[in-house]
Design a protein around this nucleic acid. Structure first.
Lengths: 99, 99
DNA sequence: ACTATATTTTTAGAATTATCGAAATAAAAA
DNA sequence: TTTTTATTTCGATAATTCTAAAAATATAGT
């Protein structure tokens, strides 16, 4: 992963509403949750919620799958894994490692 | 760690300049690097650099220690560890776990 | 005291992001 | 085909952040 992409992902997670959305999905797990369920749970106005979800989608932290009228938001664990891996990589290449 | 603090840390890391600074320090390791060395390495104007460093300090991703005229910036690995731990916690409490 | 070095603070304009109501769109049921 | 449900797009305002020059501060050497 490149610096620039990592920064983008971190920035998207670095907003309390978006972090709450993502973590709710992480808790829900693989099957994801409909936008409406997130709305109910976190009590965010529809348009605001939609905006934040689309940003999470833009960095692929979330994938969306439609089931008739319902849009499921599915957390992409691999993206988070890659991010963590990136943050830990190249650690202390000039010294003994702490991680 | 709370959501709000995690979001703050993520937001500070979520800027390409700050991420570069932090990752440079991670590479350097424990002994850290003087502001001037970061300036040289990343070629950022002094005032801009100082601004970004102070934001990293504000969330304790960096600690600063003065040695006479030189200010060393020391990466705080524990904060990063806690953040990663937070991101992975409570995973799939409603389903089988992916992480 | 004066000078040099290292770094921060101030400041201000530009750019980006956040919020959310209202209108629009998509899909299915009546 | 009209209505209902689910969600997004538009648009406008407010708020925050970014950048970097210039001035200020801190520490030490002369």
């Amino acid at each position: 992963m490149e610096n620039e992409i990592a920064a983008k992902i971190l920035a998207e997670l670095g907003h309390i509403t978006r972090l709450s959305i993502f973590r709710y999905l992480v808790q829900v797990g693989d099957k994801g949750a409909p936008v409406g369920q997130i709305q109910e749970k976190l009590n965010i106005p529809w348009s605001t919620l939609s905006h934040h979800i689309s940003r999470l989608v833009s960095v692929e932290l979330i994938r969306q799958v439609r089931d008739s009228r319902t849009l499921y938001c599915i957390p992409q664990f691999e993206v988070l894994d890659d991010l963590v891996e990136f943050l830990r990589s190249e650690c202390c290449t000039e010294a003994k490692c702490k991680m």
